[in-house]
Nucleic acid binder design. Sequence first.
DNA 1: CAAACACTGGTTTTT
DNA 2: CCAGTGTTTG
Length: 660
Amino acid sequence: MTIQRLLDELNLEQYQAATTTAQNALILAGAGCGKTKTIVARAAYLISQGVPAEQIQIMTFTRRAASEIVTRVEQYLGVQAQGLRASTFHTFCLGILRRYAKAFELGQFNVIDRDDQMLMFRLLRGKEKNNELPKAAQLLDVYSFARNTQSKLSEALAKQLPEMVEQKEKILTIMQAYEAQKRERGYLDYDDILEYVAKYLNHSEALVDQVLHRCQYLLVDEMQDTNPLQWLLLKPFIGKAHLFCVGDDAQSIYGFRGADFQNIHAFKERVPDAKVMTLARNYRSTQEILDLSNWILKISPLDYQKQLVAYRGEGIAPTLHTFANEFEEANWIAQDLKTRHQHGAAWQQHMILVRSSFAGRQIESALVASDIPYQFIGGVKLLESAHVKDVLSMLRIVANHKDELAWMRFLTLWDGVGDVGASRLASDFLQQDNLLGCLEKLKKFSKVPTQIAMIFQQLLDIQHLVKQSLEMALNALQEQLEKNYQNKDWSRRSRDFDLVKQLAERHMNVSAFIEEYVIEPISHSEVERAKDQDVVTLITIHSAKGTEREVCYVANASVGQFPHARSQGQFDEVEEERRVLYVALTRAQNELIVTRQNLFTWTKDTIDTEGRPIVGYFFSDLPPKLCRETLHRRGSQRQKTWTFDREDSFDKPKIGIDFD
DNA sequence: CAAACACTGGTTTTT
DNA sequence: CCAGTGTTTG
């Protein structure tokens, strides 16, 4: 394939966008209007015009999107595309931190993930029962929100946890302690990675010039999901690099992470010379699917100005199915998939979209029961799962003996060691100059088998052999892990280690391996199944942006889910929920199947303090002509396995003797 | 008295 | 599947 062939496939608007000579451009593209294609074409076009591939940096939201874009550019350009980088903001920044380490005066650092942050916050917060302090997870969310929105703690608190505003002083103390601890231990959390780079770039022109050597052209995907911190990162490049941003404000669904669609709306003011272009023609779906999607936006009090028109014309009307409970719903989806497969459809043409990974588990089990091959994207990732982290903790310790969190994790694996004992020992280890010093102390600690210290020593010698290190650590811990995870799916968990070994093999040393996967975990199925394998995709809506399938199931579209009960009555949040649903609906190419449960709960539409109407359930007043509706009575499933429903419960008879 | 263990219940979304 | 809670143990 050639670049000309690629450009020929574009329509006029896409072509003009991909070949623009403007220094800065903003492309507003509706769902399914060829956003990815335009970015791919832009990159390919630039390269064909003589721009060295290594000077193009594409920013995406997920690893999947990044690798897809690179693969597609390679398809058209072959070796010419070599050196083209597409990465997430975090990976991009981490690269800069490593490459220009001296400029940041950071010394050795370790990237920590959410679990590590939680542990730190939990310990700092203390136990204090019946305390009014927020939980560790909440503290972390507020902290991260404040940083991503570049706002004050009091503002973030007012927005995220209004009921905790009075506790501000106590919360402040905890967060200050957290920051001090991070500095002391050389930890960087997710937000640090962005903030260091963003702030230093804004501070030092020399650094910007350095970085510019590698990114004359910045292509930003999903611009609507960028937050003020990410904008701060882009700002120093304005006027120096070429900025090509693509986004759709109706698909902004990362508000909880501080995403700010001012980054789109105010783009013209912030970048005065920017050329704004629009892609309005939808190539993905049939008109019926778009009619329903358009309607969701149209009933909003906000004016989204999105009325997508299908280039493909008309097709099959969406269907809405209502079930008695989640089992019926999941089983029906499985059965429907089977029927379609028997009629010749490939598994991979189907995608099931769920709001939460929790909701996905119901469906997952129905797919397993029906023997349908699937991949689950979203939810707990392979390298985030507890048992994998247990083993990795040993490798982390070898890479950096002052990694207190890794020590905590490792020490608490053993019988008779809890949070308190472990943290006492770990802070002892922090005083040591090297791992050998720690090992001397570890040998005297009777609760950990003595041969473990030996294994640490051996690991020290083979640090560069990632796979062997992993095997050795696994061997050392296997017996104990088996004990810890008995009754907790040990047999399934132990199979994961082969996958981890596969991943590990690709890396030069242990720290590089750990670092990459802290930033971009990767789900089980992504490793397990080669990309082009024929499987059904089960995916959270947040992970599904940019993907499409012939047949899409939007599951669990029940009352209390869209909008989610937690956002009930809050205008901005409900609007974000609306966009989440919109993203889900617009993934479908040919057929859209919405399923829900007939819960006997009702929500009221309300009006907020500013007089704006807030809807309680998006499908309340669904016009019948947009959707074919089917009500499913309880099926045969119920007769086979009788389970207790709330309405089936009765007073339990008393069992045993009468002690009277 | 402090710390570890066993159990129960309730889950948004992600780098 | 994890986090918080109540109960046992040293």
